[in-house]
Structure formats: C-alpha cells, structure tokens
Amino acid sequence: MTAIAKSVRRSALGLGLFAIVTGGTIALTQVLTAERIAQQAARAEAKALFEIIPESQHTNDLLRDTVLLPPSDRLATPGPVTAWVARENGRTVGLILPAVAPDGYSGDIRLLVGIDPEGQVLGVRVTSHRETPGLGDRIETKKSDWIRSFDGRSLGDPRPNRWNVKKNGGVFDQFTGATITPRAVVKAVQKTLVYFRQNRSEIRKILNEPPDTRGNPLTPDVIAGQQPEAEHS
C-alpha cells in the first residue's frame, strides 16, 4: 500500500470515528434534553395543580388521583381526557381538566382549568405557550394577575355573549397591544365549562357519585363560538 493510500485510509477512518462520536453525542444530548424538558413540564404541571386547588382544600393525593373522561373537540386534546380529582374526606371538591387554546398568536396555549361540582371555576393556569414576551405572556401569573379573573366564574357568570375580551363586548380585559392571546384563553375556558356541563352526568358516574337530578340544559348561545379578528396577539 502506497503512502498516499495509507494517508487516505487514515483520514477516512478518522472521519468515520469522528462521525460516530459526534452522532452519539448528539443522540445522548437529545435524550438528556428531552428528559429534562419532560421533568420541567411535570414540575410546572404539579405546581399549577396545587395553585388551582391548594393542598389545604383536599385530603387525597391530587397528583395520583386521576380519571379518564370522554374525548371532546372542545378541549382540543386528542383522545380521552385525563382529569385530576380533588377530594376532601372522600367527597369530590373539584376537577382539574387539561385544555388547549389552539388559536393563540404563536400557536397552542396549554391550560389547566379547575371546576367545582357546581360548574364554577376554581382557577386557571397556563402550563405552556409561545406567546410574545412582554405582550401575550401576561397570561402567566408571574407576569400579571389576569388569569385569576376566571376565579369564581361559570357559564352563567358572565352571560354567554359576555365571555369575551372587552374589545369584543366581553367582560375580560385584553392586553395593551395584545388581544388575540387573552381572547383565545377566554374562549378555551368557556369551552371547558361547556364540556363539563355537557358531560356532567357521565363525570358523576365515573366519580361514583349519585346522579345530578337538577338538570342543566344548554341553550344555543352558551355554546356559540366567538368571532375571530385578524390583529396582533
């Protein structure tokens, strides 16, 4: 073998070894990064759950007490819905449902919505989003208290046609320079309440609770959509 051939062979082996090491490093980094992201998401979710229903308000293990509820396009989540149940001495005091606002300015806004057995909002928290920093990110509790404006609300409070931002005739504040983001969250919370109302009988059955004999019919205006507008988030 000539010196040139040996040199080419050594170079090829070196490049091959470099490619193997680089590929392995990238793959390992991706695995470790994905694991860290999953852990961070789980921590954020757990934190949000206990902000919506604090430990002082239930006696069960909220993180482990989950039920599967019927799928629905209203929540914009695929497949059956995994909901967290808060119980106090065996009595259900609240349900926390995952929901997605698919029409945020920069994509999906993932939420957790806490609802009491009467259909009243216990709290709402955003678990992930990509909204504009300084504008749409005011849906986070560390940026503003806006998300707390849902506390105590229900399908009848405000009236169905007032479930919108003030710019569109609703009762919820919009952000300066950002209307799409809060409007998307308002719409998602309202749809979650509609889902809860429509599936109340099934939910009570899953929770092994007696049927609700009062009845809660939905009128068309309760489930009516809201008109979108093309403007900045």
Score class of each variant (00 low, 15 high):
R91H: 08
L95I: 14
I96P: 02
L97W: 06
A99S: 15
A99N: 11
D103E: 15
Y105G: 05
R110G: 03
L111E: 07
P117G: 09
P117W: 10
E118L: 12
Q120S: 14
V121L: 05
G123F: 12
T127I: 15
H129E: 12
H129R: 04
R130V: 04
E131R: 12
P133G: 09
G134N: 09
L135P: 03
L135I: 07
L135N: 04
L135K: 12
D137N: 15
D137M: 04
R138H: 13
K142I: 06
I147T: 10
S149M: 13
S154F: 02
G156N: 14
D157I: 09
D157H: 10
R162G: 01
W163D: 02
K167F: 13
N168R: 06
G169C: 11
G170D: 12
G170F: 13
T176A: 14
T176W: 01
G177P: 07
A178V: 08
T179P: 09
R183H: 12
V185M: 06
V186T: 07
V186W: 03
K187W: 02
A188H: 00
V189T: 03
V189H: 02
L193K: 01
R197C: 01
R197F: 01
S201D: 14
S201Y: 00
E202Y: 00
I203Y: 02
N208T: 11
E209A: 14
P210N: 10
P210L: 11
P211E: 08
D212R: 10
T213R: 14
G215L: 07
N216L: 05
T219V: 04
T219N: 06
T219H: 08
P220C: 08
P220L: 07
I223H: 02
A224D: 12
Q226I: 15
Q226V: 13
